[in-house]
Nucleic acid binder design. Structure first.
Lengths: 338, 338
DNA sequence: CCATTGTGTTGAATCGTTTCACCATTAAGC
DNA sequence: GCTTAATGGTGAAACGATTCAACACAATGG
């Protein structure tokens, strides 16, 4: 219970605290004898370093804070994995905060990580966080934005061109002869959603005779997708869209489940369906799901890379902006009617 | 860059550091006037608390360390969610470590959290971690085990009866008239895997004429499932099992993908397939997947509960052991042959 | 008018580690 | 044998927030 500290170790080993610290942090500068004694003292006492004290002295921790919208979304868990691997190479650890798309919780995590004096922050921000992030930047907190960038070019960022992705998806639907397009997604305050919608809008605008309807969801989850699908299946057949672009794969899979349950709507015959992210489960769905693929792991990897460069460069750092291009993946859910 | 600290705030506000601390931590005991001045000073300086210093004094942080095998597995992301919600109620934050089933990384996270003097630890341990956890318990680190328990009853634990679950799954397969059962999963060093296998073994043992084959995988992922499925589909039809029990849904979905890709094997006609966890995607699969359901969110929730009780009780705490019962979910992937 | 109570505020001690200027001891050089 | 270097080791001063005994001052009661 009473925690063992460096002094206890030093006493038992019969050396000074400085030497114990040296054994731990600069093994080269210490004699065999002392090193031996210290290590065995550590062992018998079960000494565990106190990171708070280390950090207090060092001024900064060896953890990177990563704030994501939804870890239940495979896109983000892949992204996390990419970030973790790159971080591990530099002997850094990733601390993960899941906001469930809630701005309040986003704020809590950002503040928590700031107070922890993390090495740096990786955020895919909901809009409201930006002023706070600017303020924290002034206090020396390096941040890399994901799927977001600022006009003033103050932050490094790594993103996928969501507008292009949205356009890709809907262009494909239009090419397959669909014209009554519906965009399912929300809330539009999420950048990814509004950008993908913007792409959809562009595609439809270039195609005379095509229409775009918006089906709002409260979040980007399977459950919300089911709900949206249910609402659509309740409509009279004539009032239904002939194609749906879902803001992500979770929604799309939910919609698919709802259609299947209703027994009234066949994908792709009645309605074509395309999602976004190309998660592993998209290919395994009831009707293999067309989607727009993003290099999720690479995004996480690259974000850490940018962060490392920024911290290394210090004050005179020129923020970088990296944009990946999305890729269309065509499967059965958008094949031709027959 | 130069970080702002309490003293800076105190100076600007024209009060002592003690008073600033009071404004932050005991707002009731401070006059309007001082409070006002301090808050505005904090605002103009952009002061951010230093958690390291707080913790050093407090001796313990307000974060719970949660170590999971694989965040890409929806079972674990649901569990995390349950834990986070319960933690939030107590004004605690969850720090997440993903080991990807790697004992080395598990050890890194456990040590990291111990050094951070987290409020407590929630682990679903790979076997090798137990000695370390015992040692850390002596140093005052409270730990709740998930899907694991020790004979000596030293740790609180929350688990689902994986043996019963495995038996449930295979009993079902046998009832549907299958006899050449295969268990797909691995490594067997993972407790969940060996327990579920044990359940399968029991079921088969009670059923004369039934056989049980083991198909090893390196991890519990969709990719490994695909690989295993591929290997099976390469065999001559007569050498294939007529039912597969996969150690989790990710594997099962991978197997399903491989069979579908091969075009040679139909589920459930040629081979019945059942998974474990009943993740959201199981119901949406190409062939809706039978599975064994676990109360994932509740597990996380309960684990935090146990931890809170343990920390509150202090030294004279009697570890508790909670076991949930799994539930069979039957879908098309195990329906009768026709 | 003094004693008592209460309300705010202060300053110094504390938490455990790291760092660094400064000793001790030995080895090498002449 | 004495100086110079080199090698190990030491102890005290940070780091920044919290806590708490002590104090200042005002209000109340007798």
């Amino acid at each position: 219970m009473a925690t063992v500290n460096l002094r206890d170790v030093a006493t038992l080993a019969g050396v000074s605290v400085g030497s114990v610290s040296n054994v731990l942090n600069r093994p080269g500068t210490v004699s065999q004898d002392v090193s031996q004694r210290v290590l065995s003292a550590i062992d018998t006492l079960g000494y565990v370093r106190n990171d708070a004290a280390r950090q207090l002295r060092a001024g900064r921790s060896r953890c990177i804070g990563l704030v994501v919208l939804d870890i239940a979304n495979p896109f983000f868990s892949d992204l996390v994995r990419g970030a973790e691997r790159r971080a591990a190479e530099e002997n850094l650890t990733v601390l993960l905060g899941d906001t469930e798309e809630d701005p309040a919780r986003e704020r809590v995590y950002i503040d928590l990580f700031a107070e922890q004096r993390v090495y740096g922050l990786l955020v895919s921000p909901l809009g409201e966080a930006m002023p706070r992030l600017r303020a924290l930047k002034k206090q020396g907190l390096s941040t890399v934005l994901m799927d977001w960038h600022t006009e003033d070019h103050q932050f490094s960022s790594v993103a996928v061109d969501n507008v292009a992705g949205g356009k890709l998806a809907v262009d494909h639907l239009l090419e397959m002869g669909r014209t009554r397009i519906a965009f399912a997604g929300g809330p539009h305050s999420i950048r990814q959603v509004s950008d993908r919608f913007e792409g959809a809008r562009k595609a439809v605008a270039q195609h005379p005779g095509a229409t775009l309807e918006v089906i709002d969801t409260q979040s980007l989850t399977v459950l919300q997708g089911r709900e949206a699908g249910h609402r659509i299946s309740q409509r009279k057949a004539a009032a239904r869209p002939d194609a749906i672009f879902a803001a992500n794969d979770l929604l799309a899979l939910g919609v698919l489940q709802a259609f299947n349950l209703s027994g009234r709507i066949s994908v792709p015959n009645d309605i074509a369906l395309i999602g976004y992210d190309d998660i592993d489960f998209a290919a395994a769905a009831m009707v293999p799901l067309s989607s727009v693929k993003q290099p999720s792991t690479e995004i996480g990897h690259t974000a850490v890379d940018l962060l490392l460069r920024e911290v290394a460069a210090g004050a005179d750092f020129e923020p970088e902006r990296i944009v990946f291009q999305p890729e269309l993946v065509i499967r059965d859910s958008t094949s031709a009617q027959h």
